[in-house]
Design a protein around this nucleic acid. Structure first.
Lengths: 190, 190
DNA sequence: CAAAAAAGCAACTTGAAGTTGCTTTAGGGT
DNA sequence: ACCCTAAAGCAACTTCAAGTTGCTTTTTTG
């Protein structure tokens, strides 16, 4: 017969990590507004008092959870062939968008109800603009004409995927990504 | 000295209209989750009891408010010149997206937290696909090649505007719309 | 092993949502 | 003009989740 009346406590970083992870999952499942701090605590196996002590408001908890995972823009290999590189980046972006964390980020930031989260939204935009380097290099190689609106092209690709996933609620697979990239690249080349 | 202790009541359709209108405004301002039925009632100058009697849940109130305004896809004139027609449609779509009602629709439907609202989301998609006729006619005229992926093109245009407005939080004016339409049209024409 | 820090716990406070029973008002029919 | 009924108002109440507090227990560390 074990003597422990309670399960062993998780403290410090262990407790913080558990809570932030549950927060991300919950963000993806129910979104920001419906996220309940007491429920997060329960799911993390932690007393709600401990959570409130560390993060006085829901906004701060969510901000830290999102910040812990943003700012690591998905890396991709640059082969030097523009179309292949864009597809590689797109695959990474889609994988991110489909992951629990990605769901959390998009659900939390799309409507951006909470002013607390605005700064993070721009972080997401920055990530979206990650492969800009690919395009500028393609211009330098002469693969694209100098006047091409690269920023517009990226926004358009990202937007098409967003539309597909979050408005039409249909899956965005590699075939779809390829169609989008080809459409935009063809447009970019006149 | 006026004898009226209370302002005159609004009944029936007048009351319903006032409440639905306030509901739309509030949807645009605070979104679905933060929308408060008692607050809507107060803003509409109506007792909350009356609101609850007519719409037992917030979901039903919002659904009726949105339904009262969706299903009227913004019309546009079709001149027969594809680019001009797409731009005309886009102007209408942007005007809609910028209006209080449009804000309401997007904020309520983008994340689509509430299962009650799912059916309306597809309504929005239908509206998005409104100008499909323009494209099919352009194909028939020979202005576009038969195999062109028209649905993809429309999704991409809509997505680019969505990305601009709701992720980047930057204004989408006529110049931007024109760039997007030209990019996609150029891509569609190979 | 003692002291301090961190987490647990239960009881409490608060505030918004929604409910109820009843009263008052609007407006059509006679 | 009056009455009768349906619709709206009103205030008091219930409920429930969020967040707070004071204190106890556990873990860490020096």
């Amino acid at each position: 017969m074990t003597k422990r009346k309670r399960p062993p406590q998780r403290r410090g970083e262990a407790m913080v990590g558990a809570v932030l992870q549950v927060t991300l999952v919950q963000l993806g499942v129910v979104g920001f507004e419906r996220l309940s701090v007491p429920e997060v605590a329960a799911l993390a196996g932690v007393n709600k008092t401990s959570v409130y002590r560390r993060w006085p408001t829901k906004g701060e908890l969510v901000r830290e959870a999102l910040a812990s995972v943003l700012g690591e823009p998905p890396d991709f290999v640059a082969t030097g062939e523009l179309r292949a590189d864009l597809l590689a980046w797109g695959r990474g972006a889609l994988a991110f968008a489909g992951s629990p964390v990605g769901q959390a980020v998009f659900r939390a930031l799309l409507s951006a109800d909470d002013p607390d989260l605005r700064p993070l939204a721009s972080e997401l935009t920055r990530t979206t603009k990650g492969p800009m380097g690919l395009l500028t290099r393609a211009v330098r190689r002469g693969e694209l004409r100098p006047g091409a609106n690269l920023e517009l092209a990226l926004s358009t690709i990202a937007g098409a995927l967003l539309q597909r996933l979050h408005v039409e609620h249909r899956p965005a697979d590699l075939a779809y990504l390829t169609q989008v990239v080809d459409l935009v690249l063809d447009g970019l080349r006149r």
